[in-house]
Design a protein around this nucleic acid. Structure first.
Length: 551
RNA sequence: UGGGUUAUUGUGUAAAGGUAGCACUACAGAUUUUGAUUCUGUCUGUCUAGGUUCGAAUCCUAGUAACCCAACCA
């Protein structure tokens, strides 16, 4: 018996529709507005839409919802396409809502001819006032009773450019006392004398979201139009338009958007972070954008796995950042090359090791033997991590301390004999003796040590800048806190180590390489790296049981 | 004083009247030349109150809480 995999509610809907023969195959769509960069919340939607089609043998269109020329730009179109591809998905068609402007105009005329739409000359303020409130019914506009013929003339004049922005709108004629605010004669066309990134200056009237989006779905024969919870009230209008226009009956289904701890997910807030320079840009590795995660070193697989693990449902959620971190560690643990880098150096001198001597040692590149090994130069003087030495060792301390011995990874066991301090009491060097017969691979010393530390040969070390990223916010849910969310920005979200010591093999680091700096975390090369200056980003730390114990 | 949606451990997500499961987190232990990985184990849950039933997370009734809706944004 094969274990029955439990389905999320959307998969159940699709399976039922397919089983009942409602559709022969499904078509979904991912409908970004090209006015910003994609974030991890979009990744959830992408995985859902493309994943559903992939799992059930359907297709997915990429459709840019470009009905507001004022805020949209081709720059965003390109970045969105890049991000979707990077995540590992391909679309069946690349469409634009603006491709349908002619058809949408005809649909609008149809509504007018059916007496279901009218041109309103009221100001925005007046329209808002007459709309009422959720608890108070609206009132009809005085223009609501215009004749069909007059509406046709006026709407065409709107299209011809006879009116200025805001002078007139086209509204659906539904019900000003409807309990659903969206059904109170929603605006479906407005005048905007603006240049559109695709249609140029052909149009000066543009359809509103509810009109354009739903009918674009119909035009593309989208079977399952999946969106987030806040669009639930829109569904009634979505269905009304399909019914009145007698177009393909696409159906809208809603799921809860992704929220994650220690970050914000709204486009508006992310834009603020960029504009007010709290981060370096949309692809700042601290941003929850897809390009931010990419630059930080996250893999497409890890993000897809994350989207799989968080599930899909209709209740508000706040996902632990630790789950995402688990996913990226899970992937990188298997694939990242192990290397040694010392971030906060202190010099270790092996007093009984011949001066000027160099040995070539070897170390495994990863847990899987097929990853091979690499040469590692070893000498009398080494850089080790400052935090790996304690003058007065804590209990359960496995690392270096006066009189204590540790294994130097892939090298020898050393024992601390003494250490030196400068005038300020800062330790500047540690003197050790080594056991020649403890060499890694053929250790005959019989000495057992509890700790193993990483190191880099002073004589062979190269340098690099290393950027250590931490969570962008200090609180779990900055959006839910009192006051401005930016008050909760973590002031220590970026620590730059301008000169870390790296093992020589890292000089050949390439763009898509992933590394584990042993005992320190996963890292990748940053786009700022040049031939003269390497720059690494920390993708994520390793789990740190000792670090937790200390607290 | 309206309408809509949702409620299962710290966080997510399953269970379609029949043993509340899985993952992350946390904690404990084993292994470890990364205090990583791996392995083993432990803790915590059905919003509340009634009802129906042999049996309720699931059905009924009444509450409660959270989120969404008053852009010529999407």
């Amino acid at each position: 018996m094969s274990e029955e995999k439990s389905l999320n509610f959307l998969e159940e809907i699709v399976e039922t529709d397919l089983k009942n023969g409602k559709y022969k195959s499904i078509i979904t769509r991912f409908p970004p507005e090209p006015n910003g960069y994609l974030h991890i919340g979009h990744a959830k939607s992408i995985c859902l839409n493309f994943g559903l089609a992939k799992d059930y043998g359907g297709r997915t269109n990429l459709r840019f919802d470009d009905t507001n020329p004022v805020t949209e730009d081709t720059e965003y179109v390109e970045s969105i396409k890049e991000d979707i591809n990077w995540l590992g998905f391909d679309w069946s068609n690349e469409f634009y809502a603006s491709d349908y402007f002619d058809q949408l105009f005809i649909h609008a005329v149809t509504l007018i001819n059916k007496g279901l739409a009218y041109v309103d000359d009221s100001s925005a303020e007046e329209i808002a006032r007459l709309k009422g409130t959720p608890t108070e019914v609206g009132k009809d506009s005085t223009y609501r009773s215009r004749s069909i013929a007059e509406n046709i003339v006026l709407f065409n004049e709107m299209k011809e450019g006879k009116y200025k922005d805001g002078e007139k709108v086209l509204r659906a004629k539904i019900d000003m006392s409807h309990t659903n605010m969206l059904m109170r004669d929603p605006i479906i066309y407005r005048i905007k004398h603006a240049h559109h990134h695709r249609t140029g200056d052909k149009w000066c009237i543009y359809p509103m979201y509810d009109f354009a989006h739903g009918q674009s779905d119909s035009i593309e024969n989208i079977t399952h139009s999946i969106c987030t919870l806040e669009f639930i009230p829109h569904r009634e209008l979505y269905d009304w338009l399909i019914y009145q226009l007698e177009t393909f009956p696409s159906h809208q289904y809603e799921f809860a958007r992704l929220n994650m701890t220690y970050t914000v997910m709204s486009k508006r807030k992310l834009l603020q972070l960029v504009n007010e320079e709290h981060v370096s840009g949309w692809d700042d590795p601290r941003m929850p954008t897809i390009c931010g995660f990419r630059r930080k070193g996250y893999t497409p697989l890890s993000i897809r796995n994350f989207c799989e693990k968080i599930g899909v449902a209709k209740r508000e959620n706040l996902i632990d950042l630790s789950l995402l971190e688990f996913c990226v560690r899970e992937d990188l643990n298997e694939t990242a090359k192990r290397v040694m880098v010392v971030l906060d150096p202190i010099k270790l001198i092996i007093t009984n090791y011949e001066e000027g001597k160099t040995e070539e040692l070897h170390s495994e590149n990863g847990p899987d033997e097929t990853m091979g090994s690499r040469a590692l130069p070893f000498g009398r003087e080494l850089w080790i991590e400052r935090e790996d030495f304690m003058e007065e060792p804590a209990k359960k301390w496995f690392r270096l301390a006066p009189g204590a011995a540790v294994r130097l990874k892939s090298a020898y066991i050393v024992k601390c004999e003494s250490f030196e301090k400068d005038d300020f009491g800062k330790i500047i060097s540690i003197h050790c003796s080594y056991f020649p017969d403890s060499k890694s691979g053929n250790d005959t010393s019989g000495i057992a040590v509890k700790g193993t530390i990483h190191w880099v040969s002073v004589a062979h070390a190269k340098t690099a800048e290393v950027r250590l990223y931490d969570r962008l916010f200090q609180v779990e849910n900055p959006s839910a806190e009192e006051g401005d969310f930016k008050e909760y920005i973590n002031p220590n979200s970026l620590e730059i180590i301008s000169q870390a010591f790296i093992e020589p093999s890292l000089e050949k680091a390439a763009k898509d390489d992933r590394f584990q700096f042993i005992r320190k975390g996963y890292f990748c090369l940053d786009k700022d790296a040049t031939a003269d200056k390497l720059v690494f980003n920390r993708t994520v730390t390793l789990k740190d049981a000792w670090g937790k114990m200390k607290i």
